[in-house]
Simulated assay, not measured.
Amino acid sequence: MSRRGRRRTGVRRYLNPVTVGGLLLVVVTAAPLYWMAVTSFKSPVEAGASPPTPFPEDPTLDNYRHALDAADMGRYLYNSAVVCVSSTVIVLALALLAGYALARLPMRGRGPVMVGLLMISVFPVIAVVTPLYLVERELGLLNSHAGLIIPYVAFHLPFAVWMLRNSLLDLPRELEEAATIDGAGVLRTLRSVILPGAGPALFTAGVFTFAATWTEFLMALTLNSENDFRTIPVGIAIYGDRYQVPYGVIFAAAMAATVPVALLVLVFRRAVLSGLTDGAVKG
């Protein structure tokens, strides 16, 4: 084949509909993130300029300083960290035990239970936020970390249980039997055999739970109205006043909230994909 023919073949390979569609999807997804990052380094005058500049002409870190100091973003980040880490740890602990029970223990109605878990995992939050507010008001849980942790665990536990159960189905029973023969109890078997085998799925469920709770807005806005307990999405949304919108500070706070989760997913993307595909064919 001639050089021109090889060149045409290479061009056709990279200009197929799948590749072009993937590139368009990347551009559409990355464009808002790029604009948010660029604006976070602009001065207030440049951020509101028309037409907008594609790059900051005089980059500044003042937006980040103002977001962390004057805008209480440090407090909002702390609240988000407490709520999200606590919710993730509780979800993983309960999901491991429930997933093991569904995968190993004999029980009736296993199919309906799994279907119910899927239905709960896709249930819209907006349908229950009002009754949830009334219940937490009666229990005195409004404006507290626990008032968010409890519903976050309830909403994200079903998906984690489903993932852990499917992963544990692929774990050979012979490993547990060998541990039992060696004299290992239930807790030691869980720690030495089950945890390593369910590691990828456990990690993936943790990443999904943390990311979902970190970015959740509706329940955080409804259940925690006091400034001392607001999370970072709510803090970003309410920042500003009736006379001006400080886009640079808002985007700087959004970058501070987005980068940790994005880095977590990018660094551990292989483990996340492994957890998603582990036991995917199991029902």
Rank of each mutant, 00 (worst) to 15 (best):
V89R: 02
A201N: 03
P54S: 11
G99I: 09
T53I: 12
A103R: 06
A93K: 07
V186C: 12
V153A: 05
R6S: 10
N227T: 08
F268R: 03
A30G: 13
V129F: 09
T231Q: 02
P172V: 07
L117F: 08
L168V: 05
T19H: 04
F55G: 01
D170P: 10
T277I: 13
A154R: 05
D278Q: 15
R242K: 15
A262W: 12
S167M: 11
R65C: 05
T209N: 04
P200D: 01
L97A: 12
L24C: 13
V113Q: 14
G199M: 09
P200I: 06
P56I: 02
V27L: 08
T180N: 10
Q244T: 14
A256Y: 03
R65W: 11
L102F: 14
A67D: 06
V193S: 08
V153W: 05
L105P: 08
T213G: 02
S121V: 01
V18A: 12
L132Q: 12
V125S: 04
G275Q: 04
V129M: 08
N224R: 06
K42D: 02
L25E: 02
D62H: 06
F251L: 08
S86F: 08
R13C: 10
T130M: 09
T189R: 12
M255T: 15
V45E: 13
V265Y: 01
L221F: 15
N63L: 08
P246A: 05
A220T: 11
S274M: 09
R4F: 15
L175V: 09
M1D: 04
F203Y: 01
A49E: 11
N166S: 14
G283L: 07
G140D: 03
F268Y: 08
G283P: 02
V83K: 07
L77P: 01
P131K: 09
E57K: 13
V234D: 05
A256G: 12
G275N: 03
N227G: 00
L273T: 07
R75K: 09
A70F: 13
G279A: 04
R3S: 13
V82N: 00
T204Q: 02
P106C: 07
T209F: 01
L139S: 02
L175S: 14
L141M: 07
T215F: 13
P131C: 07
G279S: 06
V83M: 05
G206Q: 00
R165A: 12
A237F: 14
L148R: 09
P32F: 02
G116S: 13
F251Y: 15
C84G: 04
P233H: 11
V122A: 04
V272W: 08
G140P: 06
K42N: 13
F55D: 07
A212G: 05
A154W: 02
P200W: 01
E216Q: 15
Y34W: 11
H156M: 12
R188I: 07
R4G: 14
V245P: 00
M219W: 11
V128M: 13
W214T: 00
A101E: 03
N227W: 03
A95D: 08
L132P: 03
E46Y: 13
P124A: 05
